[in-house]
Write a protein that binds this DNA or RNA. Structure first.
Lengths: 279, 279
DNA sequence: TTTCTGATGGAACAGAAATTCTATATTTGA
DNA sequence: TCAAATATAGAATTTCTGTTCCATCAGAAA
């Protein structure tokens, strides 16, 4: 064909996206900047004006035009049309796609089904969370932990990631904390150093790791307040805790989601920081 | 209030829609015509220009302006903004629920608001997840990792909890894995022992911990396949990965949720086990 | 170094956009 | 039926948008 030399101008978003990713390396600096912005903020491209997008992406409007032409479009408007088409299509078919996914599950491979199932479980867990957590108790817990000198985080096995996340978040927020969850025997020694002004946050779900329970009650016996997150009122953790929260995670084939516990932990970390800031 | 006579200008689509329906009868002929067109073709309103919409709706452009002003907007553009906002937000089915929740927040205390906000962010992240992950790529990833002798888990800082969770889940599933994420210098030594039959799973989000990137590319350079989870197509991780997934987590006040990443990690672990069982 | 190639920034331009204005038409109320 | 009020169409206006063009700049090649 006579106009064959103009290769690009993909007319659907996915093709464009693939093309951008493919040629990402060879793009000059500013065009690469536009590429990154475009893929990260597709909605902006769809709705914004060349000027507003240029401002947001910190380039000149002319750069947008050049970018578009680099990919075979006539001008910026033609490229924008692709981003808009994507929004139109996605909207009309979003629900359908979900249904397709679910319908396809039975037929199609197991992996996708597993992923969907976990997503579903996570959603359910989160809904549970909002329903199960008493805001006032949450408030008290964050206040209690905010007043602590050091927060000791006690968790093992499945709950251990929650403690590692809180350790990360709390240090980011400049709140002193100490994690007790490694297999090494030094945990008990570290906890033995816990001060009167300290507090602890313990997490344990059924199957209850014995070390977690032992450490939490040891601290409680010494008068150190313990806040805990567990999944049953009959949990041994509940007995020795000043404040405790019951949170049941939904599961897929026995593998319990951690999404709600994570959301809880994140919120607690930030709430503690808020309390401190206010005080 | 003194400016009470200007009632309208609803700022979200649902409110506008309700208002239009309510006042539909009392509208003059041409304005009613616009009302019908707007509710029947909301996408047109969002994307079109005043002129093109006027043509489609068989009215004058000025009629569109008058219509907008009738409902309390400054001009047509302000009304169009509402139609566009709707398109942007439509992705998440939990949007409505969030609004409700946030409505209650104003009343409730600060801590509870923080908790709700994190729950909302987690829901949104999960919706993102289903939309963003390509099932086939997920399938390939789990197959690739299933065929590995040992799976090396590489993550730091915020992503570290994800690796600790996977380490837990994989060992439960009797799949050999090795975590590389501690501050100690032994990680590199352990990774140096990685076998040809091994594979790696790396997680890093913007802010990209340099050790994670360095270790992942070192493994890739030695021909060891790397599957990674990151938040941008421009992540340095994407470059050196055999398969990579892009997943953007929603956030509350800058604290990004981990819920979707967690769900992904859990699903991946189980999917790997499934693959192995089948093989 | 010097030269050359190509990327970049920014101003200028042409055109299209939204909005306003006004004469005309239509409805409303007595 | 008539007048007053309101709605409408279409032109006029003004604002803003996408694009182009060109001088400058950075980096590669000679």
């Amino acid at each position: 064909m006579d106009r064959g030399e103009i290769q690009g101008a993909p007319k659907n978003f996915e093709a464009l996206r693939a093309l951008i990713l493919e040629r990402r390396r060879e793009l000059p600096k500013r065009l690469a900047q536009v590429a990154a912005f475009a893929l990260d903020n597709p909605d902006e491209i769809a709705f914004g004006t060349a000027a507003s997008i240029a401002t947001d992406a910190e380039v000149q409007p002319s750069t947008l035009v050049r970018f578009s032409q680099t990919f075979g479009f006539d001008g910026f408007s033609a490229l924008q049309a692709v981003f808009r088409a994507r929004l139109r299509e996605r909207n009309s078919s979003y629900e359908d796609r979900l249904v397709e996914l679910e319908g396809g599950d039975a037929v199609a491979a197991g992996s996708a089904a597993i992923l969907n199932s976990f997503v579903g479980a996570a959603h359910r867990s989160l809904d549970n969370l909002s329903a199960a957590i008493d805001p006032q108790k949450f408030e008290s817990a964050s206040r209690l932990l905010a007043s602590a000198g050091t927060i000791h985080l006690i968790a093992r096995r499945r709950s251990y990631p929650i403690a590692t996340y809180m350790a990360y978040a709390l240090s980011q927020l400049k709140i002193r904390c100490q994690i007790a969850g490694t297999a090494s025997g030094i945990d008990d020694d570290l906890l033995a150093l816990a001060d009167e002004g300290d507090a602890a946050f313990a997490v344990s779900f059924s199957g209850y790791a014995p070390e977690t329970v032992a450490q939490a009650s040891a601290l409680a016996a010494r008068g150190i307040p313990v806040v805990s997150l567990t999944d049953s009122a009959f949990s041994p953790l509940a007995e020795c805790s000043t404040i405790w929260f019951e949170l049941v995670e939904a599961d897929h084939a026995g593998f319990r989601s951690l999404s709600a516990s994570m959301a809880f932990a994140m919120a607690l970390a930030v709430a503690i920081a808020e309390e401190r800031r206010r005080a």
